[in-house]
Simulated scan of single mutants.
Amino acid sequence: MDKRKKRYSIRKILMAAVLFAVSVFLIIRVLNPTPKGKNINKFSVSVLTKAEKGALRRYNNDYHLEVARTKGLKEPLDSRKDDKESAEAFCDRHELVEITDNEYYEIPRLSNSLPYLQESAEEFLNLLGERFCNQLEELGLKKYRFSISSILRTLEDQKSLRKSNVNATPNSSSHYYGRTFDIVQTRYFERGNSTPVYTYRLRNILLRELIKLQDEGKCYVLLERQTKCIHVTVR
């Protein structure tokens, strides 16, 4: 009788362990569902047309600078010494918003700029991310985030950047005013995955959304050749 009870107890323990393992597995699947959609590397995306390429170079840096000066910060920041206070205090003083990673884009460690934009520019950035993700969903693709490489620059940042970036103008930049950001053309991240995906296919999908937003009068877009960046200024 004791042996039967012992075997019965062991079976109960094993069943409880199995039920616990299944419960944990289901909870993990609910909290971290398997991404839906096709992998971008298994999907065909058409190359940019001549008209699309023209739209991406229609507005040169002069247009970007004019709207940034008109609607952005009154004066450029001299150096990063202006950023020594807390992010909250800095944003309050300059009427800026801190830009951080979210479901639409990732902000790497910025070397020649600060992660701040004016509030309306941040709203545009999130709108772009939302439209990009919606387009991926319509195409039956997995969700990917784009990567931002430069945001708000100080005068000191711009001077330092000129040593390695031929597109960095010597005396003026739309990046001074909190309405401009650069997107890396070909680096993306599948949601929930920290390994970058390098592809022109996602770039072309993103660029087509930017062209639509430019046509709606919401931004200027410039496709930079040398730096492999997408230069965007919010209007």
Rank of each mutant, 00 (worst) to 15 (best):
K163I: 07
K228S: 11
V97I: 13
K84Y: 06
R93F: 11
T186I: 13
Q226F: 00
E85D: 04
G37K: 05
S120W: 02
R131G: 00
F146G: 04
A89Y: 08
M1Q: 03
H175W: 11
R145N: 07
Y220H: 15
L139Y: 13
N204P: 05
V45M: 08
I99H: 07
T169K: 15
A16H: 08
V22M: 15
E130N: 13
N171P: 05
A68Y: 03
A51V: 14
S194L: 10
R145H: 07
R208G: 02
L152D: 04
L207H: 01
V97R: 14
H231Y: 09
S147F: 11
E95R: 12
S164D: 01
T199S: 13
K6W: 06
N167W: 01
I10V: 12
V47M: 10
L56E: 05
T233S: 15
Q135N: 13
S86Y: 06
K3E: 11
I10N: 08
L26H: 00
R57F: 00
T100I: 09
D101H: 05
S111I: 11
G129Y: 09
A121N: 00
L128I: 08
R80E: 11
R109N: 11
M1A: 01
L56S: 09
S23R: 08
T49S: 15
L161I: 01
A87E: 08
A68D: 02
S172A: 02
R7N: 03
R80T: 11
Y8W: 09
K228M: 07
I13T: 13
N165Y: 08
L65K: 03
